[in-house]
Every structure is written in C-alpha cells, then in structure tokens.
Design a protein around this nucleic acid. Structure first.
Lengths: 231, 231
DNA sequence: GCATGCTCTAACGTATACATTAAAGTACGC
DNA sequence: GCGTACTTTAATGTATACGTTAGAGCATGC
C-alpha cells in the first residue's frame, strides 16, 4: 500500500526537517495513528520526531492551514475531528470541483492513452471487490479520482481537490466497512469514462454529480444511523 | 474603505507578531505595493516590520500556502505573479465553487432579510457605475460575491472561494480599466438574485455559470490583446 | 461545600545564536 | 582573453535562550 511514493530510505522527505516533520505528522494523522482529538505539545512532538521545536512549529502551521490540526496556544496541537456537518461541507466542495474536472477532461478529448490510468484504476476496483479486499478497493478508488482531477489539466483544481480528499480520508476509511459493498461505484466510474471518451462534457459532469451525490447520501445515512457525530 | 475591520490602532492584528506580519504583508501584496515579482530577504522583511525573523518566517509559510508568495531557499520570498494560465485555472475553480454556492443558496430558500446584503451590493454597483467610480464598483462586486458564498451556509466553501478570489484580486483590479464598462454584470447579478428568490437552484447555478463564463472570456481576451503574460 | 483571588508552573511567542551551504567573486593556469 | 577551481560571503535552517502569561492548583473566606 502507498507503494508508488517510496523512493529512498526516507519515504518522502524534502531534505529539510520541516518537510520531515510535516510528512511524518501528516502520515500519522491520515493513518489514524494520531486519532481525531489527539493532542500533543510542541515539545513532545519535537522529542518524538527527534528535532527542535522550530521545524515542528513550521510544519504545524502547514497542517493547520490544510485543516488537519488546530493549534491552541496553551494546549499544543490537536488533530481535528471531522464532524458529520464537516463531511457534508467537504463533499459539497469535492462534488463541485470533481464534476467540473470531469467536464474539463471530457471537453479536452484526451487521447485514449491518457485515459489508461482511469481504466486501470477501474479494473483494480473490480478485482479488489471480487477478492473482497476493501482496502485495495478504496486505494484504487482514490487513484481513480486523483487521476481524474489531474487529467483536467488544471493543476490548481487538482491540488485543491487533493487537500479536501485528505481531510475526508479518515472518515471514508472508517465507514468503508459499515456501508453496503460499493458495487455501484465501479459501474458509475465506467459510465463516467465512457462519457469522457465520447467527449460529452455535460454527461461527464452529470455522471460525476450523480456518483458523488449517492456517495454523500450513503455516508450521511451511516453517520446518522450509527450516531457518529465526529470521526 | 475596509472600514468594518478596523478596531484599534493596529488595523487587524491578532495580538501576535505573526498575525501582524501576515496581515501587513498580505495587504501590501493585494494592494500591489509589493508588485508581482517583488523579492525580499527574510532579514529585510524583519527589519521593515520591526520584528525578528521568526514571526516573519511563520507568516511567510501561510502566505506561501495561500499561493501569494514563493519562498526560494537562497533568494528570500518572491511575490508570485499570476499568469494568464493561472487566471484561467483560478476562474475555473471559482466558477465551479460559486455556481455551487448559488445553487445551495437557492435550495435553502433563505428569508428575504438574508438576501438584503446581496441586493444592497447590487444597488451599490449600480450607483458606482452611474458615478463612473470603478473602484467602488469593484468593491461592491466583491462584496456581492462574498455574501453569496457566505449565504451558501458552507463555511468551507466560502473560505476556499475567498482564498482564490484573493489570488485573482490584483489582476482584476489591473484589468478593471482596460475592459468595457461592466454594465452587464449588474443585470446578471439581479437575475441571479431573482433565481435565488424563486428558490430555483438550477437557474441560479446557470445564471452564475453564465456570469462567470462571460467574465472569464472578457479577461482572457484582454490578457491576450494586451499581451499580458503575468500580472 | 463552594466561590474567589493568589501563586506558581510551564508552554508558548519571539529573539538570538550558530552551523551549513549555495552562490558570487577571485585568482590562477592555459 | 577564457574557463576552472578555490575562497569568501551571507542567507538560510535549526537549535537554543528567555520573557510573558494563561491556566492549574491552592488557600482563604463565606
């Protein structure tokens, strides 16, 4: 898992301690090793990461800007929980931007070869589902959506979507096993790809909108059902 | 101008030097006193702002995250120019999110009173246009759009839009006097408000989409006409 | 028992110190 | 005169020092 990124010994450092701290903390948060609500003082973090407070502080600023943590003056940082309401907001934004991305991709009419990653991701989702491997399924699903926004050709849009996707990641993983098997998603993805291939921008937008709308409804239902106010 | 914010002597500081530095630098950039391409070393900035490098660095991280500046290891910070391509990307994202906001507002069917700020802003735009006061017009226009996204009820969306709006601000102000008088904008705004009042979400989305699309085309045309690669 | 005000600790915000290292300048050989 | 390797400089990244102050704990009075 997350294999494509690893390069050397240090998984994804930019050489600087700030980057090391940023990536290390981000990873722990996304992997839920630092659960929502987790608190730690700057000094503790520095100790944990084997550096001084300075780079830790700078990394925390980035994480705070990205909405993953909150820094409260006397209580250190706190991993932000994501409430049901937050998820709703995130899904609205994601839905809007990804639908636009789908539209843009279709309008660009990219050559078949460029769409290969999308098709590969779709296939991987199918295969994972057949094996009942939900983690692999989720990984492939994320890959599909990441490629989609990247194919839009709008780097700003892609980066923005990625950020919001990160915020929703934990909640998605958590509810992965609570919701009905995602048998529809694959079909919807296929449909979306078909619309893109036809160069039918409106259909692509609509396909994505419907896809996300269903996803949002399912998630909301689960959050309500299990009374999960925050994740 | 920017009257509502001022509170004490320091216009908009949060008490901390980091906040002071952040707001001071952001203001200079948005006001174009630090033009695109402007460079400065951390030490110079610290001197200018009357503080040490530490708070300056932390403020710079925020500004860099927001896409207003770039920090190059040996050459200090640099105010990022916005290329025509960047503007295109920004407008695509803004268009997507604001259209969604319009749709959300309409779907909420808010009471008349809540729409008052929108109508007031529209009126102010008309009045400014009648006086040929383009700055006041632009200010009212920004107010209209800000209120619109705030009325969506989605705080995340509102914050995101505001950020992108900031990035585009300079270019908008620059082209303000190069483009035809914005006589259509007001009419389009009015139409949008009408759709919202009717609670017609689809019409609201479409009205906004058309509005933005025209704006994007006009801007692109100007950038091409005057060969303005960056702003 | 509970509220109020005081003391004291320690976390933070900021300043400063310092080692590292990229970049500019310089001398040298050809 | 031109390219190359060395020296020097200075901007940064990081660590550390330090004053300030929020907040916890405690004593006191009701």
């Amino acid at each position: 898992m997350t294999a494509t990124r690893t390069r050397k010994a240090a998984p994804e450092a930019g050489g600087s301690l700030v980057d090391t701290a940023y990536h290390a903390m981000r990873r722990r948060i996304l992997d839920n090793r630092w659960a929502p609500g987790f608190r730690a003082l700057e000094q503790e973090l520095a100790l944990t990461l084997g550096m001084s407070r300075t780079p830790v502080r700078e990394a925390l600023i980035r994480l705070a800007n990205e909405g993953l943590v909150e820094v409260v003056p006397r209580h250190g940082m706190r991993v932000l929980p994501v409430s049901a309401g937050d998820m709703d907001e995130i899904y609205q934004v994601l839905g809007s931007l990804e639908a636009t991305a789908a539209e843009l991709v279709a309008a660009r009419k990219p050559p078949r070869a460029e769409l290969a990653p999308l098709e590969a991701a779709s296939k991987a989702m199918d295969a994972a589902l057949a094996r009942d491997d939900l983690d692999a399924w989720a990984e492939a699903d994320e890959r599909f959506h990441r490629h989609l926004v990247e194919l839009s050709g709008n780097r700003l849009l892609a980066a923005t979507v990625q950020n919001f996707w990160d915020r929703a990641h934990r909640a998605r993983m958590f509810t992965l096993r609570l919701r009905p098997k995602p048998v529809n998603s694959t079909r919807e993805h296929t449909e979306l790809v078909r619309a893109i291939r036809r160069g039918d921008a409106a259909a692509a937008r609509e396909a994505h909108r419907a896809h996300r709308e269903r996803g949002r409804r399912e998630l909301t239902a689960i959050l309500a059902r299990y009374r999960l106010p925050t994740l």
